[in-house]
Amino acid sequence: MTTSISEPIERRIRAEAETLGFDVCGFASIEQAWPAAARLAEFVEAGRHGEMAWMETTRARRAHPKAMWPGARSAIVLGVNYGPEADPLAILEHRSRGAISVYAQGDDYHELIKKRLKALARWLVAETGCELKVFVDTAPLMEKPLAQSAGLGWQGKHTNLVSRAFGSWLFLGSILTDSVLAPDAAETDHCGACRACLDICPTAAFPAPYQLDARRCISYLTIEHAGPVPPEFRAAMGNRIYGCDDCLAVCPWNKFARASREMALQAREALKAPALADLARLDDAAFRALFAKSPVKRIGRDRFVRNVLYAIGNSADPALAETAQALRDDASDVVRDAAAWAVAQLAKPRDGKERSVSLSPIAPGLR
């Protein structure tokens, strides 16, 4: 797309963003009140943030975009489509395979977005001389309500952003600037009476529409929660070993979304439907090699293998019993606990009664 220097800066920014690979770009004023701060306070005060202590310690900085930078006047909010090519829920039927959330099947999207944001920021400074700051979701800036203000979508009943063009599949990034940009109209809520995202949640993590209790969320439990997962949630995790796409994938607005060719090219075959038996055998070095440049890497081998063992316990596949048994002497407490649970689960027939599982002696090299 070509533009001229006489065109409005907002149009020129959109054109440059498109050139850099962003799928959508919107503008919001940040001079107004910020009702999202009250919702965040209720969330934290109810303890629904679980072990994510950073949500409490950074609460004041999240209270308003200006708390991040008092000189900011406007926000540029950008989105990258990561719509999957196939149904992300199909893998849940293959219980001896691990389900890794769509966004984590390739390189870390934070790095992808950050490079593009910085390139756009450099261009904007050169064009206008403005001051600005760049944010991906690792910073304490509430990007979903900001994206709604900029017209990119609305926060659905599952609390994630929903777009009429991209469904529930948008990565977000933001630039705060001291320039005054013409704001776009805020998007309105189009969820209507639909509650598909609430009803599909395996652990009933939504106490009410637009409210999330992270302590029950499988994404939280598999990624942020460090210790053993509470027993009442383990069976509901199924074979989800990193994140959970259920509430996103079931959204009816996804029918207007399109698959992202870029994300399809980045996705690694080894992470689309990995065998649980192979993943359970990963030591620290092998884990780091497999998940190099992946967001999965940050949770570490022990937490990841813990998740794999819960999936093994839910697999109903007696052939995986020896794999779990081999980890009962693992150096990690959390892995040993998960291995014992998996072995016990595989010893139960479908009627819930104990049955014997034939296990070979543990070879010395597997201890």
Rank of each mutant, 00 (worst) to 15 (best):
Q155H: 01
Q155C: 11
G156L: 00
K157R: 05
K157S: 02
K157Y: 00
H158W: 03
L161Y: 01
L161M: 02
V162K: 03
V162W: 01
V162D: 00
S163L: 06
R164F: 01
R164E: 02
R164N: 10
A165V: 01
F166R: 07
F166A: 05
L170T: 07
L170S: 09
F171W: 14
L172Y: 04
L172F: 09
L172N: 13
G173A: 05
G173Y: 03
I175A: 07
I175F: 08
I175C: 10
T177I: 09
S179I: 13
S179K: 11
V180F: 02
V180N: 05
L181V: 15
L181P: 15
L181F: 04
L181A: 07
A182L: 06
A182T: 15
A182V: 12
P183Q: 13
P183E: 03
D184L: 06
D184T: 13
D184H: 15
A185T: 13
A185Y: 00
E187G: 08
E187S: 15
E187M: 13
T188H: 07
T188M: 10
T188Q: 13
H190N: 13
G192C: 11
C194W: 03
C194H: 06
R195K: 11
R195H: 00
R195W: 00
A196P: 09
A196L: 08
L198N: 04
L198H: 02
D199N: 15
I200E: 07
I200A: 06
C201M: 10
P202L: 06
P202R: 13
P202Y: 03
T203D: 08
T203Q: 08
T203I: 07
A204P: 02
F206M: 05
A208M: 00
Y210A: 11
Y210P: 14
L212Y: 03
L212V: 14
A214W: 00
A214V: 05
R215M: 08
R215Q: 14
R216Y: 02
I218F: 00
I218L: 05
I218S: 01
S219F: 02
S219W: 00
S219R: 08
Y220L: 10
Y220V: 11
T222I: 03
E224K: 15
H225Y: 07
P228N: 09
